[in-house]
Amino acid sequence: MFTAFADPRTAVGVAPDSTVHISRDAGNAWEQTGKVSAPAAAITAAVDDGGELRIWVTTDNGVEHSADGGAAFNTAIPTTSSVVR
């Protein structure tokens, strides 16, 4: 499982089956909150100024983002490419 901390107590993780999990006690207990659309390669998270947990997960379909604490994900960065070098 890939994991990341949003703050010292809030951790998020994405499992091989694409399910997303959250721990609010620094990793002791975990609960499944949602699922991304494809197997993941990386995850990161942050708390916004409204106190909402935001999660980004890179998957085979692109970067998927959740603005509701991991309940629902949408593809924020779809799968085509354009890069300035």
Binding site: A6, D7, P8, T10, P39, A40, A41, A46, V47, D48, D49, G50, R54, W56, T58, T59, D60, N61, G62, V63, H65, A67, N74, A76, I77, P78, T79, T80, S81, S82, V83
Partner: peptide, 24 residues
């Protein structure tokens, strides 16, 4: 202190550029 991110910045992140990601 929790990491804070502005709502506007987070919204901006949802409309960003495209990429392809291959887990190879």
């Amino acid at each position: 202190m929790p990491r804070m991110i502005s709502t506007r910045a987070a919204q901006a992140l949802t409309g960003v550029a495209a990429l392809a990601l291959l887990a190879t």
